[in-house]
Each structure stands twice: as C-alpha cells, then as structure tokens.
C-alpha cells in the first residue's frame, strides 16, 4: 500500500496549489526580516505564522478529485495523510526558517502542530460538504478567540494550543484516528 502512496505522491503534489502558500511564506519572511532589522519583537508574527501555516496545511486537504478517487482501494485517510505530508513538510521548514531568523527564544513547532492537528480533526468530523473550509478556519478562529477572550477559564482552554501544544496535538491526533473511516 505504501508503494501506491509513493506512486501517488508526484501527481498529488502537482494537484496541490502551491502559490498561495508561497505568497504567505513571503509575507511572513518580510515581516520577520523587518522585525530583525528594526530590533523589534516578532513573537506576535511567529504566533500568526503558526496559525496561518496550520490553516494552509489543513486547506491542502481539499481534493477536487475526491469523488473520482472514492472508488480506488486507498482509504480516504491514507490520501489525507499523503496530502498532509506533502504540504506539512514545507510548512514545517518555513516555520523553522522563521524561527531561526527571529531573535527571540525558540518556542518550537508545538503550536503549529497542535493547530494543524486540531484543524485536521475538525475537517475529519465536520460535514463533508464544508469539511476542509471549516477545518482550515479552525486555527484562525482559535487564534482570534485566544486574542479577544478576557483572562479566565475560557481563555485558558482556548489557548491550550499555545500553552500545552503537545497535549492538544495528542488529543487531536486521537480524534483523527477515531475518525479514520470518515
């Protein structure tokens, strides 16, 4: 089965739209370089980058040929994993590049992975018609809620992707595994 996925990697990579992600990377790089040149804090940019890159990776799950491929003997989840690997690797590389360019202490890729896993879990469990759109919006919504909610329990819960990213990643991964047949 892994041979099939290896064979499918190149056509899938060709089907993925790379330009929006590249443009997004360019904007983030300019912001970080500008912050570095001006000796200003870019922590906020890195948090935006985590949410933006996570949303991009989840958006990469959209497969216009999904109905056509439903009949092939490769499960939907395997095809999702292939797409996540193809889009996730450059996103992770971008994150490391931004993190290494910034002068702040490295925070690690935890928030990016946690938000991506949460978005994927939502996309897996959401109604099929809008699944990827809802999943890709999830990191953005979590980011916005974390920013506007007043300090308290709700804010703490919503902000777990930033404070306890590895727990969020584990729970979201379990949800994805539970929904592997969806």
């Amino acid at each position: 089965m892994s041979g099939v996925l290896v064979q499918a990697a190149l056509p899938t990579a060709r089907a993925v739209r790379w330009r929006p992600g590249l443009a997004l990377t360019g904007v983030l790089l300019v912001a970080v370089v500008l912050g570095r040149a001006a000796d200003r804090s870019v922590d906020a940019v890195l948090v935006v980058a985590a949410a933006g890159l996570a949303a991009t990776v989840v958006a990469g799950l959209q497969d216009p040929a999904a109905d056509l491929l439903a009949a092939v003997p490769v499960s939907v989840m395997r095809r999702r994993v292939l797409r996540l690997a193809l889009v996730g690797a450059p996103a992770l590389a971008t994150w490391w590049l931004l993190d290494s360019l910034s002068t702040t202490t490295s925070s690690g890729p935890g928030p990016l992975l946690a938000l991506t896993a949460t978005g994927v879990a939502v996309a897996v469990w959401a109604p099929t018609r809008r699944a990827v759109l809802v999943g890709a919006s999830t990191p953005v919504v979590l980011f916005a809620l974390h920013r506007v909610l007043p300090t308290g329990t709700a804010s703490d819960v919503v902000g777990r992707w930033l404070t306890d990213p590895w727990w969020v990643l584990a729970i979201a991964t379990l949800l994805c595994v539970a929904g592997r047949r969806r």
């Binding site: 929006p20 992600g21 997004l24 935006v48 933006g52 949303a55 958006a59 890709a136």
Partner: peptide
C-alpha cells in the same frame, strides 16, 4: 479554501 490562511496572515 486557500483564501482563509492568505487573508488571515
């Protein structure tokens, strides 16, 4: 769907 991260960032 690609517009969501682009506009957000």
């Amino acid at each position: 769907v690609a517009l969501v991260p682009a506009l957000f960032v």
